[in-house]
Write a protein that binds this DNA or RNA. Structure first.
Lengths: 148, 148
DNA sequence: TTGCGTGCAAAGGTTTTGCATGGCA
DNA sequence: TGCCATGCAAAACCTTTGCACGCAA
């Protein structure tokens, strides 16, 4: 099985521990770095990136690249199976990222795979739009500004 | 109607010209910058970003953010109407952008709007994954590397 | 003329790289 | 012991921001 290649160092262990402990959500490098430092095992940024890269390559961790400036996010992959039913919604107004576990949506992947010959990587796919809060706000602004 | 707001400058014009001329594919800032410079109308990077931002806001250009380090990509949106039932598939392997007109997919927006209170902007939303060609190629590579 | 758009340069943030050292196997 | 991983710092990169000047309206 594709597992931790290379040596076992405590940095790598701690890093993986953290990822696993937070597998329900995604983190980023600065969070990881801050945690490890606070935890008593400060790890250099370069090392974190290097380990993360390897973990991603080995399929142990998933990398999300929502936005160039925010920095990439990483998340431990618990099980292969959870991948295809999990999408993300990102609000373009407030920037909120919403995790979406929905069986109905899972059908999308299948539909597209079958009918369009395209395999969606839902971990990389983000639906952009507006969350209910922002939609409300914009609706009001728009009605005041209607021109067409 | 949401069009080029603000003044008409030759920089903006050239930039838009380039985007329209390359509407079949996506470009990035360095490409644009290089082109404009070679073309005899060098435009400052800051200006390109600023104009691009505005174009994106006005719905004239679509912005893709694949990866932090690659930089964002931009693409001219040909027609307004194509947007709301129209999703995009982008192959992460070969970079191909596939336009997807499909009634079934249109239901996605409604489902998410109703059940998740989120309004998808399909013109900004891109499904990332793998096209059939690349999937085939990868499948072979993966089976050769199977360890479990 | 007014004020927006532009350009330059500097700042900001994330990620990568080089090199010497330290630790795993 | 040999080699990989680490750390630090510098570099590279993309993007944003400040400020003065030029140009569109």
């Amino acid at each position: 099985m594709k597992h931790e290649s290379g040596y076992n160092t405590k940095q790598k262990e701690k890093l993986l521990d953290y990822l696993i402990a937070n597998k329900s959500r995604h983190t980023n490098v600065s969070e990881i770095s801050a945690y490890l430092a606070a935890e008593g095992t400060p790890v250099g940024t370069a090392t974190i990136y290097r380990q993360l890269d390897r973990l991603v390559e080995n399929g142990i961790v998933r990398k999300y690249a929502f936005d160039g400036k925010t920095g990439a996010c990483y998340q431990y992959i618990e099980d292969e199976q959870q991948c295809h039913t999990h999408f993300h919604l990102k609000c373009l107004s407030c920037g909120r990222l919403i995790h979406l576990d929905c069986d109905h949506l899972a059908g999308i992947s299948e539909h597209i795979a079958e009918h369009h010959g395209f395999i969606i990587d839902s971990s990389q796919t983000v639906f952009y739009g507006m969350c209910s809060d922002c939609a409300k706000a914009k609706k009001e602004a728009a009605s005041a500004n209607a021109e067409e």
